[in-house]
Structures are given as structure tokens and as C-alpha cells.
Write a protein that binds this DNA or RNA. Structure first.
Lengths: 143, 143
DNA sequence: ATACACCTTCCAGTATACTAGAAGGTCAAG
DNA sequence: CTTGACCTTCTAGTATACTGGAAGGTGTAT
């Protein structure tokens, strides 16, 4: 049993997650409150290293902290490998990504259309506030 | 000359932008500070209606307030139809959209891969913290 | 003894674009 | 004169995931 007490700085070093963030995760409820030394220093074990690395990986997958929390809570409640919940979460997330992508593509296309119109500005007829706005204010009154 | 004094409620009604938002735009510097009545009520003109509608349209194109501000300031500085700046802005914006889309696609694909692996869990070998995390904490200690 | 790195808590700020609500003034109608 | 709809300013909250800094305690080496 290597019960090496890892202080927060070490944990940070081993995981690449800042101490601020570690404390934040604890407060957020995604990391367990660790034991403390006599002088109130947090100390962690290898388990915490693993858990934090797991969180990190989940984040890289694009999960939000709240979603990671869900997964962790479910796992802690002893629910099997909690695959249904996670599968559900992932499916929803994928859908969300798809929606977002469509949305971005739409916005992008609209911008491109505008842009294309400008590139060949053959006739610049009545383009008051629509395309290139020449917004007239009452003189230079802004002080 | 129809110098109808439009109060903020009317402006809101005519543009579909809430009064709160209108005041916020003013503070943000995107809408001019309007004249006031004796009793300190803001009053607006048709020009403001147009400008606000322009802002609304620009927002729909996916521009941020700060970007709209840029465009407006440039226009107010008397820079031609300010097309170069706007073209630039739009080009950058389009690039940003593209990047974001790629990013989302990557995240999406990674999720899908995970998901596919789960759907046919033929061999569930060494999946400690990697796939379906069975995170063991020390009992049911959370109080 | 003191320097230094480390730890603690707490408060505030970041970015974005608002929204909610409180407390109070104004105006026209009845 | 009161009611109700409008207007005002100001403060704070929303969501997200942290980051920064202050003020102060701890532990070890010299």
C-alpha cells in the first residue's frame, strides 16, 4: 500500500489541472472533499488522481461539468456501468452538436452571401441600412 | 416633417426589442443617447427605429454587439461605405464559423466512436476509467 | 530567525447579452 | 384625487468554468 499523501500542488502537477480548478471542482461537487492534514491542507490519493484524469478526459470529449457530475453521481449510486445514462447523454450531446453545426452553417452562408454581393458591387442601389450601413447621426455630436 | 416623439415603449414595440435591451444598447454604446423630455423620458425618432432595426438584423447575421459597434463607429467616422472593414469582419467571422464547425464535428465524431463501442460491448476488457466509469468512492460517505 | 514555497479562505472578475426587480417619478383619464 | 400605465435609475442575477489576488497560516531549510 503506497498511501502517499499528495498535496494539492502535486495533484495539480500530476494531472495538469490547476489548484484553483481542483478546488473549484470540489466546490462544484465533482471531486470529493479530501481529507485534511492537521494544518488543514487537502491531501489526496491515487484514486483522486485517476478521478481527476477521468474528468479531464470527459471534458475533452466536450462534456460539461454538470454532465460529468451526472455521470459520476450515477456511478456513485452504484448503478451498473451506468451505460444507459451515459449513452443517453452522449446521444443528446451529439444531437446538440449537429444542431449547432447546422446553425453555424446557416449563419456562415448568410454572411457569405452578403460578402459575395459586395465583392462585385455593380449596382449599389438603395442600400440604406441593409448592406453597408452609412449610418448618419446628427453631426459629430458625441462628446 | 413628422417629428413624432417616440418613447422607449413605442420604440420597443416597433422594433421588437425590449426596453431593457434598448437601454442596455445605449449603455453599451451602440445606440446614441437620445434626447429627453422635461421629465427625463427618453424620446426617439424614426432614425433610431431604423438604427435599431439595423442592429437587430446584424445580430441575426450572427454579429456580436462589439462587432456591430465597430461597424457603427466606423460609419459614424465618415469612412466611405466602410465596406473594407465590414468585409474584413465578415471574412474573419466566416473563418471563425468554419473553425467552430470543424471543432464541433471532431467532438461529435469522438462521441460517436465511444457510443459505437458501447452499442456492441462484445469484450468489456479493462475499461476502468476510460469508457463507462465505475467510479468507486469510499463507501457511501457523502453526508 | 527568516526566507521561501506551499497551503488556506474569501471576494471579485472574466466574457456575453441581457433580464429581473426594487423604489420611485410622471402623466392622462375618470 | 386616485388609479394605472408608463417612465426613471440602480443593483444584482443568469450561464459557464474558471482565474486572480489579497491576507494570512504552515513547513522546511539555512
Amino acid at each position: 500500500m503506497q498511501n502517499k499523501k499528495i498535496l494539492i500542488g502535486k495533484l495539480s502537477e500530476e494531472t495538469g489541472v490547476s489548484t484553483k480548478t481542483i478546488r473549484y471542482y470540489e466546490e462544484f461537487g465533482i471531486l470529493d472533499k479530501p481529507k485534511r492534514t492537521r494544518s488543514d491542507y487537502r491531501f489526496y490519493s491515487q484514486k483522486d488522481v485517476d478521478k481527476l484524469l477521468f474528468i479531464k478526459k470527459a471534458k475533452e470529449l466536450g462534456l460539461k461539468l454538470s454532465e460529468i457530475k451526472e455521470i459520476i453521481y450515477c456511478a456513485e449510486d452504484g448503478l451498473k456501468p451506468c451505460c444507459n445514462l451515459v449513452r443517453n447523454l452522449f446521444t443528446k450531446k451529439i444531437k446538440k452538436y449537429e444542431d449547432k453545426i447546422v446553425e453555424l452553417n446557416t449563419a456562415k452562408k448568410r454572411l457569405e452571401e452578403k460578402l459575395n454581393k459586395w465583392v462585385k458591387p455593380k449596382q449599389a442601389k438603395k442600400m440604406k441600412y441593409s448592406v453597408c450601413p452609412q449610418i448618419e447621426t446628427e453631426g459629430r455630436k458625441r462628446k
